[in-house]
Amino acid sequence: MSDNIVEIDNLSFGYKGRLLHKGINMVFPRGKVVAIMGGSGSGKTTLLRLIGGQLNPNVGEVRVDGDVVHKQSLDGLYQLRRKMGMLFQFGALFTDLSVYENVAFPIREHTDLPESMVRDFVMLKLNAVGLRGARNLMPTELSGGMARRVALARAVALDPQIIMYDEPFAGLDPISMGVVCNLIRSLNDALGATSIVVTHDVHETFTFVDYVYFVSGGVVVAEGTPEELTNSDKPFVHQFVHGEADGPVPFHYPAPDYKREVLRGHDV
């Protein structure tokens, strides 16, 4: 058995001829928390969908626990997904079910446990995210941070080996952010799982992850532990980590010369 639970090998993916990823290689060792960082629109979320088998790569492959994801049958894919839990950007809670039923959903779908055991499991998971008291609320009654935590409880309801987080910090206040950071780390260690965090929040992320991949322009531009990257003098990493407006990632979307465009129609 390989030390890496997820391996991405020379992966290219794109829509309608426009390539989003151009030969990405990544490995995710068991038991680690790994972050994938990059600017908005750099295809980070798409990477999670490729790992989960919701999209198929054009070239290359993703292996989860040794199995090539896009070569699975539907049944095989569902078997693989049983090993994964995913936290969506805004939680994606089922709005017609209560908090309790949301967390119970994967348990009810995949097991035939009696109601009393389902209840014990749900309470355990809700307690882990600190929302045992909110079990009878509906998702619309929750704040953004609480919804995220319920979704997290749901994602780990069946003790997955891989937990994927899609922008777990987007739109959270600093307190909720800290709560979610701690939860990601503690759940990962408690479950002995591997976590993949897609985010662009440098400072929060660097406090708790083991390893970081920087993605830009469809390739991995830098990788390393948070310490290595903080001290890196690569221009892109420097710009990203320190949040500078202009640098290798230009402030301007490619456009014709500004002066010429402003003066179009006038005689210069």
């Binding site: 989960g52 919701q54 994606a92 089922f94 709005t95 995949h110 979704a151």
Partner: peptide, 17 residues
């Protein structure tokens, strides 16, 4: 709306069709 709020995607990722 379930699709727009990724509820269907979430279901797929939970290995539920």
């Amino acid at each position: 709306l379930m699709k727009a709020t990724e509820q269907l995607s979430a279901m797929e990722m939970m290995a539920v069709s």
